[in-house]
């Protein structure tokens, strides 16, 4: 706790004045009115050189291009799949982006590839006005078999991953699980000690704003 006193994270509230657009560039979670920059969220204020942004402490996931996310197939359609991506909108995965081989949609059942309830690790191709296009045509994309899914706040995903994946690697090694983190706040876990992994992930979500979290997690797991 002593660390906290020296360098506590500054929390902003919506509408709070955080700078002038003459001296700062406004980043995520801020908006400009006149020549002043205001915060949009209850969040953590970040100032780097001439760049200000606010990381929200809660909120729904907003899809962005090239985000790697986890989705659950909700509906099988003629020319693609509707995917629940834990956002305000559903994602759409067209046939051409979903599978590599050519299919005759009249003869082949689409369920053969992805059925309702299947979990996929996918990437956002495009997002315009509530229309979320997904793609599996990237090396990281795959179908996830078995395992469980838990939800965390999307803005806390970077904290769960840690610097160069340090935090998630720690949990993986200590619990003997395979973990895949989607940027939309869905986390897929499979392996031996799933309960312990879930417990530590929930703890990271609750205490994401405090310092020295990695030590605390390793203490919990050992």
């Amino acid at each position: 706790m002593k660390k906290n006193d020296k360098k506590s994270r500054e929390i902003t509230v919506p509408g709070e004045l955080i700078g002038s657009s003459k001296t700062f560039k406004s980043g995520y979670g801020t908006y400009i009115e006149g020549d002043k920059i205001f915060s949009e969220f209850v969040g953590i204020l970040q100032k780097k050189d001439d760049y200000v942004s606010v990381i929200p402490l809660s909120g729904v996931y907003i899809p962005q291009r090239n985000d790697r996310i986890i989705g659950v197939i909700e509906e099988v359609q003629k020319f693609g799949w509707i995917v629940n991506v834990n956002s305000a909108w559903d994602g759409f995965l067209p046939t051409s982006e979903g599978i590599d081989d050519y299919v005759d949609v009249k003869k082949v059942k689409m369920e053969r590839y992805f059925d309702v309830g299947d979990i996929i690790y996918t990437q956002v191709n495009d997002h315009k006005k509530g229309d979320v296009q997904l793609t599996m045509r990237t090396p990281i994309a795959r179908k996830l078999r078995g395992g469980v899914i838990i939800k965390i706040t999307p803005s806390k995903v970077p904290r769960l991953i840690g610097k160069q994946g340090s935090m998630v690697t720690l949990i993986k090694e200590k619990t003997g699980t395979i973990i895949r983190v989607g940027q939309n706040g869905l986390v897929w876990i499979s392996g031996e000690n799933v309960d312990k992994a879930i417990k530590s992930i929930k703890m990271i979500e609750q205490k994401s704003h405090i310092f020295g979290l990695t030590e605390e997690i390793s203490k919990l797991l050992s």
């Binding site: 919506p14 509408g15 979670g29 205001f38 969220f41 209850v42 402490l57 809660s58 909120g59 803005s155």
Partner: peptide, 11 residues
């Protein structure tokens, strides 16, 4: 609304 993380102009 602020707690839910909905983008707001002001309280």
């Amino acid at each position: 609304l602020a707690d839910a993380g909905v983008p707001m102009r002001d309280l």
